[in-house]
C-alpha cells in the first residue's frame, strides 16, 4: 500500500464519481424543483446507452451518439412528465410508484427492442489505452469521464447562476409558491427541469455504456447508487451532487479495495449516518 496505490485508487474513485455525477445531477435537480423521487432515472441511463448503440450501428459515429441519445431520452422524460406525472400532483408515494411502473415498462421495451444481450459501447480509439504519468497508467476513458463531468458541471453551474432561467429555477427550488406569486411559470420550469434531468441521465448512459456495459438490469443496479449520491449531497443541490458523487465514488472504490466484505455497507452506512445527523444531506436546505 504505497503512494502509487492510493493515487491510482483515488483516481479510479474520482472517475467513477464523475460518471455518477452525470446521473445524480439530473436526479437532484428534478427532486429540488419538483420534489419528485424519480425511480425511472436508472432506466433513462440505460435507455441512453441503448439509443447510442443504435445510433452508432446506423451512422458509425460515437460523437453523434452522445447528443442524439441524450436528446431522445430528454424527449421521453418530457412526455412522461407532461402526460403522466403532471396528473398525479404532489404525492411522493404515488410519484414513486408511477416512476417505478415506467421503469418496468422501459425495461421490457428495451428488452424487446435491443434484446437481452450484454452489449458494450466502443469508444473512439483516441479514448482507449492509457496515459503513463510518473510510472502510473491512467486509462484514457477515465480521464474522459472526469473531463465530461467537469464540463457538464460547469455548464450547469453557469446556467443556474448566470442566466435568467437559472434564477427562475432557483426561485422555484426555494419556494415554489412565492415563485408563482412573482409570475414565474413553475409548470414550465418543471417541464424544463425534468427534460434536462433526463437529458443528463441519457448522456450518462452513453458515457457509462463504454465503461459499465449496456445490459438489462443495469438500470436498477445504478439507481440506488445515484440515490446515495443525492441523499448524501443533499436533495436539490447541484454542489451537493458534485460533492456527493466524489464521496460515493471514493467510498465505493476504497471500500471495495480495502474492506471487500462490507464494501456496499461502506457505501450506504455513511449515507444513513449523514441522514441521521442532517436529514437534508450535506448541502440540502430545509
Amino acid at each position: 500500500m504505497n503512494t502509487q496505490f492510493w493515487l491510482i485508487q483515488a483516481f479510479n474513485g474520482i472517475s467513477y464519481g464523475a460518471l455518477l455525477f452525470l446521473l445524480a445531477s439530473g436526479l437532484t435537480l428534478i427532486f429540488g424543483v419538483m420534489r419528485i423521487v424519480n425511480l425511472s432515472h436508472g432506466a433513462y441511463f440505460l435507455l441512453g446507452g441503448y439509443v447510442a448503440l443504435s445510433v452508432i450501428a446506423a451512422t458509425g459515429s460515437w460523437l453523434l451518439a452522445l447528443p442524439v441519445a441524450a436528446a431522445v431520452v430528454a424527449v421521453i422524460g418530457l412526455l412522461m412528465e407532461r402526460i403522466f406525472l403532471r396528473r398525479v400532483g404532489f404525492d411522493p408515494l404515488r410519484q414513486v410508484l408511477l416512476t417505478v411502473g415506467f421503469a418496468f415498462l422501459f425495461q421490457q421495451a428495451a428488452l424487446d427492442i435491443w434484446g437481452g444481450d450484454n452489449l458494450d459501447i466502443t469508444p473512439p480509439d483516441m479514448l482507449r489505452g492509457s496515459t503513463v504519468l510518473g510510472g502510473l497508467h491512467f486509462p484514457m476513458y477515465r480521464i474522459f469521464m472526469i473531463a465530461t463531468a467537469i464540463v457538464v458541471g460547469t455548464i450547469l453551474w453557469l446556467m443556474m447562476e448566470k442566466t435568467r432561467a437559472g434564477a427562475m429555477i432557483r426561485a422555484a427550488v426555494d419556494d415554489s409558491e412565492m415563485a408563482r406569486g412573482v409570475g414565474i411559470d413553475t409548470s414550465r420550469v418543471s417541464m424544463f427541469i425534468f427534460a434536462l434531468g433526463a437529458f443528463l441521465a441519457g448522456l450518462g448512459g452513453v458515457v457509462g455504456g463504454a465503461f459499465l456495459g449496456v445490459y438489462p438490469g443495469l438500470d436498477f443496479e445504478i439507481l440506488p447508487i445515484a440515490f446515495a449520491v443525492v441523499i448524501i449531497g443533499g436533495m436539490g443541490s447541484l454542489t451537493g451532487a458534485a460533492v456527493g458523487s466524489l464521496i460515493v465514488g471514493l467510498a465505493d472504490n476504497f471500500g471495495k479495495a480495502l474492506f471487500p466484505e462490507i464494501s456496499y455497507f461502506t457505501l450506504y452506512a455513511p449515507m444513513v449516518l449523514i441522514l441521521a445527523l442532517k436529514p437534508t444531506g450535506l448541502f440540502g436546505r430545509e
Binding site: Q4, F5, G13, Y16, L212, G213, A257, P260
Partner: peptide, 17 residues
C-alpha cells in the same frame, strides 16, 4: 487472492492491488 463481486464491470479498485 482477490474476490471482486460477480458482475463487477469496473475493476478499477482491484487491478491496482
Amino acid at each position: 487472492k482477490i474476490w471482486p463481486p460477480l458482475g463487477t464491470q469496473d475493476f478499477g479498485p482491484y487491478i491496482p492491488t
